[in-house]
Design a protein around this nucleic acid. Structure first.
Lengths: 281, 281
DNA sequence: TCAATACTGTAATTTTTATTACAGGCATCA
DNA sequence: TGATGCCTGTAATAAAAATTACAGTATTGA
């Protein structure tokens, strides 16, 4: 089994700090693993001994041995016949749009691989916990995704809000955050310092953080309970948020299915209110 | 230029022992270069200082620097988007997520077929018209997509706003709409009556309407200048907005590329303001 | 609430690795 | 044939890396 799969398989049983190492490694495979312990530790936001414990848990006797294996992996992957027939999609009369969507499809595929089931399930559990409040917030562009998520989440569970508006009003909203509350943060590269800061404040208030980020891992990853990495690079001027949205929808769908009939009643009530302008019954 | 080509090019001018190093490197690219000097020297049948002189002659200040560059090379070759999708194969450790994303991918593919090039181009032209203002607005869930679009569009052109907030405030914002202005409406099934009504009001004010909707075509389609249908059915409790977002991103990308340098300057200025908190210069 | 356990980071230590200094060798050219 | 300049390897040194020991901090379970 290639190292990468080995790491993915181990994700479920790794302690927190080592899991960060695993994420950093997977996100920057293979180059970071060929670098030094110190660099990998820095990227993961942890310390050298943790990296060492990580490779030891994978079954390697030393870091150099880990690197030898990794080099062999890379060698075999890079030197095997690379060219592969691209699945020729059905013809379309819109080549520009087709190219654009093909890049997006590749993102989605890569994202599925980047998100391990254990993390996905952990995220769903956080979201399904009705006792704690749930706050969604994002950065400059991702704020819209956060709003979208809040709008849906609100339907299947109580106590959801969108930490919206200006940066300056965040502090006020922080007042209501209680220990154990769940904060869903969206942060992709060109990480906003104010968002990072807010993440820290949320941690101080003992909120549990679900971070949805890119494979470069926002600095917030250090404080997050669960991290879901999405591939956002689409060879454009700006990154693509499509994978984020797709992931959000998958989460919502998973949570709402898990809740079954209990939630269905709630949904029905809300729908009535929304479409009939009733004040409830 | 990639290191490998650089080495090949230098083969002619290298002294004997260094040429052996070059050959050993090329024959075992890239793994041996990621290993230690001693190993490379041994493989080449020469000594460590010769390896060092070799990398120095290539223009690197140190062996670690040589390795950094090599790692970057490997990374880009191995992890190009295409390769990334391929390498782990179709196997994923997250069947639920995979199924969900597969449905989305199907949506995207169907959407490409549903949007004719002529309509897509017409939409881009509307968005690229700097003389008229541009308003983005959506329904209950799609409002977030509208906000996302506005946030990006604002960067590449002036006079963009997001018709946001409560339904009741729409009327006020309507006052500013002038003949020829462009309104981007998002509306998918369970079409909101108030949104439809607003569409009619916009038409009365002689706005040009770009409608992004599902294949059932919102009633607004009748009054719209351009209609872009997106496939939203994903066999879930709610429809998926991913295709909408992907289409928005494709539009933004197309328009921003078309504008070229003129827009780039505007972007740069905005970025400066955003990241440095300058008031402009 | 307390004890036990597991996890994590700091700092010291050991080991490995890169780098430099130097001297012998080999060809080239006078 | 002898001197010059460029290659090359050995061995010493310096730098960096990996590893270990240990102590503090969360987490878990009773």
């Amino acid at each position: 089994m290639a190292i990468r799969e080995q790491v993915q398989a181990s994700l479920g049983v790794l302690p927190g700090a080592e899991k960060k190492v695993a994420h950093a490694f997977l996100a920057n495979y293979p180059s970071i693993g060929l670098s030094t312990i110190a660099e990998l530790a820095a990227l993961a936001g942890t310390s050298a001994p943790t990296v060492l414990r990580f490779v030891s848990r994978l079954g390697f006797a030393s870091y150099p041995e880990f690197q030898r294996t990794l080099r062999a992996d890379v060698q075999s992957q890079l030197m095997s016949p690379l060219e592969r027939a691209r699945s020729a999609g059905p013809a379309s009369d819109n080549p520009a749009l087709e190219a654009s969507f093909a890049a997006i499809a590749a993102n989605l595929q890569a994202t599925v691989k980047a998100v391990p089931e254990s993390e996905f399930e952990a995220a769903c559990e956080l979201l399904a916990d009705h006792r704690s409040a749930c706050y969604c917030l994002g950065g400059r562009f991702t704020d819209a995704i956060a709003a979208y998520m809040a709008a849906h989440l609100r339907i299947i569970r109580p106590n959801v809000s969108h930490f919206g508006g200006q940066t300056s009003t965040w502090r006020d909203q922080l007042l209501d955050v209680r220990p154990g509350d769940v904060a869903v943060l969206f942060d992709i590269r060109r990480y906003q310092s104010d968002l990072v800061r807010l993440g820290e404040l949320l941690v101080e208030r003992k909120a549990r953080i679900l971070l949805i980020t890119d494979p470069w891992l926002s600095p917030i990853a250090r404080s997050a309970r669960v991290v879901l990495p999405c591939v956002v690079d689409a060879n454009r001027t700006w990154d693509s948020s499509v994978a984020l949205l797709a992931l959000v929808e998958a989460l919502i769908d998973r949570v709402s299915r898990a809740q079954g009939d209990a939630a269905r009643a709630r949904m029905q009530t809300l729908e009535d209110i929304h479409w009939n302008n009733l004040a409830g019954r």
